[in-house]
Nucleic acid binder design. Structure first.
Lengths: 214, 214
DNA sequence: GGGATTATCCAGCGGTCGTTGGATTAAGGA
DNA sequence: TCCTTAATCCAACGACCGCTGGATAATCCC
């Protein structure tokens, strides 16, 4: 239990103020985008003053970046843990690699369904041209590499027809984002949509390989 | 040749001012989004005053809607023309239906590659929750219906495995948008990317059906 | 030619934005 | 207890925002 640092306390300070600000800002940025969110909106959603937001997170652009870093770090953490398990299956054989690929994609879909703000921030960032390189290299590239390795390993049991794995991976990723956006757009639990999408994804993965001709 | 209407002329009035404003605004909105674009930016890009923009397009929200209507009307026009040809192939047989499906998707990919602002506006609109219904029903639904019909017709020559056609179509559409975004993000002509993506899409369409077991 | 109509620009209004200086309050360290 | 440090809020600054009233100029209709 860390001691409180000096300073005038808030009325309810169970969590550090910076975390509260980042959480509120992330939600708002995901919903409305950078320019439509005012620092006074963030402050009101957190329950503090505008100056307090600035004191903890600096400028608005820095706050935006901090929100991205937090969300994408969480995504990366989950995916890398799943990636470790998948890598372990790489050496054991093509069938295991294909199953590991299915598992990895399931983790990815589950994560984005649970945290749709990840999809929203991801899409918004793609629409900012000057940030493409950073986003792609720091967050997307490692995942893409892993999936491509899994694809290649799984292909050992039946030659992979697709000549450009990154196109396949990217298309799959965008399909998942589209699924999450569609889920957020409709009312209801979307349980059927989730089930159908998973069936589609698994069929998609299996369809990447030509039928085994015994 | 329509006569000029009365009023103080611009210095160079080859095209109607409203068209120039809409074209400039569409580019800016696609690049930066609604809130990051000021009416003074639109005016400067057009070469007129702010008041002139307001005079021709009303409020900023109306200008935004007009840009959407123009872009999506162009998309719809192209797709419906291609859809007419595809529908003609529906009755002739499963092989023709499958080929028509390929052609229709090619038209879709070509169009979005040529006009990436369509993808940008489309994605931005998806990120505005209160506009989902309108976007989906007015523009997406007719296309989806047509593609699903083509899928069903093509399936007559080999049972369609996929049980939820709209999931397949939506995933394909999002994959195309992802392809366009990736194209815009990289330098160079992207000729190889385009070729690879087309190969992927056609393999994807063929993979929707189980292998014919002779 | 002369009013009517239309397009354009200028200037400015009220409001909101991101940001900051400084006062206030509470905690830790001596 | 007193000084330092840190967290918070208040007030306000300058800049920019969407929007508009009104002046001006060019065309049409008669």
């Amino acid at each position: 239990m860390p001691r409180r640092r000096p300073g005038r306390p808030r009325r309810d300070d169970q969590r550090p103020t910076r975390d509260l600000v980042l959480a509120a800002a992330t939600t708002l940025f995901a919903e409305r985008g950078f320019d439509a969110v005012g620092l006074r909106d963030v402050a009101a959603a957190t329950g503090v003053d505008v100056a307090t937001v600035a004191h903890h997170t600096g400028t608005k652009a820095q706050l935006y970046d901090a929100c991205f870093a937090r969300v994408f770090a969480a995504e990366r953490e989950v995916l890398e843990a799943a990636g470790e398990r998948a890598r372990a299956a790489l050496a054991t054989g093509p069938a295991d690699a294909l199953r590991a690929l299915h598992d990895l994609v399931d983790v990815f879909v589950d994560f984005l369904e649970d945290r749709p703000e990840t999809t929203a921030l991801w899409l918004r960032r793609w629409l900012e041209p000057h940030r493409h390189a950073d986003l792609d290299q720091r967050y997307a590239a490692p995942l893409y590499t892993l999936v491509e390795e899994l694809l290649a390993a799984a292909a050992a049991g039946g030659a992979l027809v697709e000549p450009a794995p990154h196109v396949t991976v990217r298309s799959l990723v965008w399909a998942v984002h589209g699924h999450v956006v569609a889920l957020a757009a409709q009312q209801g639990s979307g349980a059927r949509e989730r089930r159908e999408f998973r069936a589609f994804v698994h069929r998609f993965l299996d369809g990447l390989y030509p039928p085994a001709t015994p």
